[in-house]
């Protein structure tokens, strides 16, 4: 079973990279972009465990290592 984890900066935490990317897009003439936020995407291959167990385990993984909840939030997608 596969899982996807998205780690993004919390709203209100400055994202200098996102700001620089937004500026570069507008230099390219790609207008209409209001804001860019950069985050991390992790693809995880799980052992054969149930979806509920997988969610519990990945939630713990995010809280304890994969995300820093002072500045980041995370979203877990299971399956696929």
């Amino acid at each position: 079973m596969k899982a996807k984890i998205y780690v993004t900066l919390k709203r209100g935490v400055l994202d200098p990279q996102g700001k620089a990317i937004r500026a570069s897009l507008s230099h390219l003439g790609i207008d209409g972009v209001e804001d860019v936020r950069v985050g991390k995407f992790m693809e995880i291959t799980l052992k054969e465990i149930g979806a509920e167990e997988a969610r519990r385990l990945l939630d713990e993984a995010c809280r304890r290592l994969l995300a820093n909840t002072v500045i980041e939030e995370y979203r877990i997608e299971i399956g696929g």
């Binding site: 994202d15 200098p16 990279q17 002072v70 500045i71």
Partner: peptide, 17 residues
Amino acid sequence: LLEAGLLPGAMIVNDSL
């Protein structure tokens, strides 16, 4: 120390990049 929770807060990238 911040990551270990021995001090509060976190570090992000310098605002100058």
